[in-house]
Amino acid sequence: MIRALPARLLRQTGPVERVAVAVLLAVLLVGLVVAPFTTSPVTELRGLSAWAPLGRDHLGRNVLARLVGGAGSAAVPFVWAWGVTALGVVACAACSWAGGLVRAAFGAVTGVLGAIPRFVWVLLALSVYGRSFAVLGVAAGLAFLPSAAAVVDARIAPWRTDPSVQADLAHGVPRRAVLWERLLLWECGPDLLRQTLGLFGFVVVLEATLAYLGFAVGEPWPSWGNAVVFDWGRSDVTAVARLAPLVTLWAAAWLATVASGPREQP
């Protein structure tokens, strides 16, 4: 069944989700593999500097190179956040399956996490534990957990008494196979993919917001957030160079939103 999972995800997703997944993978690839070699202000002009299809900013730096480097500051916190959320989702699935008090207790914890605004969580965490991508990612993952957990819980809790689950158990399928393989990966798989895209959008926007407000990646290091404002309103920089970071950020956020929205099952 696990081998058939990618085919199922492909069947269950529309063109927007597929594009969003492709963009996410591209950002991860660029952010984790290419960006580490461009993020330093000294080295960022190397390699990509000769070719500047998006123009240069008023300090003569390659805008494309800065966007590529900015992907790094989105990708690294995303990987942290995804890890934290994934652990939380696994715990949530186990609690929903257990039902009763265990499920209620987990629901109370996510309720508390969800009551404090996500942005406030992240801000406090960065302030207390120091500014780093790891702290940013872990805090973002915890802040995102309530919504991911709500989706998983709403799916798994009703399955406990579902005739198809009883049919599987009575057929002799082991409990762990029913819970982890069939319910979490198979049934929730498409939802988890959409939640992943939602988390990606959240982390990108969060990192850019903090960078814009001067609390995360600051100039001269590249981030999509500080690139948006760096050349804003300057007449000596081309319009493409000024708008490219803005459009990149907006498109990433929009794609993640549209692709992660819940939709009816076919």
């Binding site: 969800g114 404090i116 801000l123 609390f215």
Partner: peptide
């Protein structure tokens, strides 16, 4: 104020505001 408090590591102030936010959310809910 929350932003300033977080920047200056003024935790009593920041935590109080975080708590107020939670209280507002809980009350409206």
């Amino acid at each position: 104020v929350l932003w300033e408090a977080a920047m200056a590591r003024d935790f009593e102030l920041a935590m109080a505001l975080g708590l107020v936010a939670a209280a507002v959310v809980a009350t409206v809910t």
